[in-house]
Each structure stands twice: as C-alpha cells, then as structure tokens.
Design a protein around this nucleic acid. Structure first.
Ligand SMILES: [Zn+2]
Ligand SMILES: [Zn+2]
Ligand SMILES: [Zn+2]
Ligand SMILES: [Zn+2]
Lengths: 114, 114
DNA sequence: TCCGGTCAAGGTTATT
DNA sequence: AATAACCTTGACCGGA
C-alpha cells in the first residue's frame, strides 16, 4: 500500500472503510473509488443495481430536489441516482453527467438508461 | 523481442496478451508463463492467492471433474486449483504434480497445502 | 520476462 | 423484494 493511499487500507484483498474518505453522493464513509468517484458501499451497490437492471425511478415529491445524505438516501431512489450521475458516477469510464434527463414528472432517469 | 516469442508483444513496458498463446488451465489468452506454465492473468492470480493464503477448497459436485475453461473457471475453485497443479503450476520452481491429493470427498487440495 | 502488489468491478451474503 | 457489508476476481503496474 503506497503512502498516497491514505485512508484506504486492505487486508487479504478486503476493502475497508476509513474515516478519512467520504462518499460524494451521501457523505457516508467511503472505502475508495467506485464507478469513477469516491463513494460508499451503499451508493456503489445502489448504482450497480440500478444500471444492471436498467431501473427507472420516479421522484415522489415531483421536484427532483430531495436531500441525499446518509440518513435520507433511501427515501428517494430517483434523486439518489440523479446525484450519483451528477457527481460523476459512470459505468464504462464515460461520464454520464451530460446526458439529458427527463423531468416531465414521469421519472428522472437519463434517456440513455431507458 | 526475439523471434521465438511469437504471440507476445510489449509496448512501453506493458505486458500484452496475444491470441497466439493460451492458458494451459482454462484456454484463455495468455501473456506468457506464470508459475512455470503458460497461464492467463486470471489463473495466475487465482493460483497466487490460493498458495499465499493456503486456501482449501471443496468440489461441490463431489466428483473433482468439473469443466475448467474460460466460461466455467470460477464455478469450482477446487477443480480449478487441481488443474493448475496438474498442468504443472508451482510456487518455487518445484513441480507439485506428484503431491498426494485428498480425494476422500472432503476436499481436493494437496496435503502440502494444508 | 516474470513476480508481487494493487484495487475497482462484480458476485455473495446477511439483514431488513 | 432492496440494501449494504463482505468477498473473489483479474487487469494493470512497478520492480527485479
Ligand atoms: Zn453514499
Ligand atoms: Zn426525489
Ligand atoms: Zn486460465
Ligand atoms: Zn469441482
């Protein structure tokens, strides 16, 4: 482990969380990079499931502006995935932040996901 | 690069795989010798981890005859490691093919691994 | 050339 | 069913 990898430790291949890093999506403790950005296990898994199953979420509030933090990240899947993408999460090393979003009160997913 | 090294190319020091060489364990493309035999990155890493951590695997099928190819190599660790050793993989330049195996439906690992 | 180390991706498991 | 912690894999890199 290099000295530059402060905050990221590994034992036997296991990835451990560390107080030094935090998730760009929800602020929870991060174990390192996931899909291009510093993210926690929760947001990493959520993004993985959403992309793999091509899930389409709808913001129940209709605003697309729900708070996404450790305490509320499971309250609105649409806003959580939106923030994942806005913070730079991507599947193939290609950013999705410039993709058009659907805000027509149907869902908040980028067109490329459908 | 010598003319004898057909199939193995390198650019800028990076090791590249080539269709000309294939892993003796699973048939995947190989980048050259690993632990004594032509092997792919996957089987090389698998053997490395197994030996280092002295892992003991069990064949769930109980036959010790699972297919080990690129598509199925992760289906049975016991049969993968068995084939690694049978094809001549070794840790210190000393062949393990003559080591006794345990076939008493407990596991398939060589005694020396335990 | 090859070996050891790295670490993100994907799979698995426990929990709810 | 979804979530998140844990685990295994393998492509890549630097060093010998
Ligand atoms: Zn998070
Ligand atoms: Zn919302
Ligand atoms: Zn192989
Ligand atoms: Zn088997």
């Amino acid at each position: 482990m290099g000295v530059n990898n402060i905050g990221v430790g590994s034992v036997g291949g296991a990835r451990r969380v560390s107080p030094g890093l935090q998730c760009l999506v929800c602020g929870d403790t991060s174990s390192g990079k996931h899909y291009g950005i510093l993210a926690c296990n929760g947001c990493s898994g959520f993004f993985k499931r959403s992309v793999r199953r091509k899930l389409i979420y709808r913001c129940q509030a209709g605003t697309g502006a729900c708070v996404v933090d450790k305490a509320h990240r499971n309250q609105c899947q649409a806003c959580r995935l939106k923030k994942c993408i806005q913070m730079g999460m991507n599947k193939d090393g290609r950013s999705m932040t410039s993709l058009p979003f659907i805000y027509n009160d149907e869902n908040l997913m980028p067109l490329a996901f459908i």
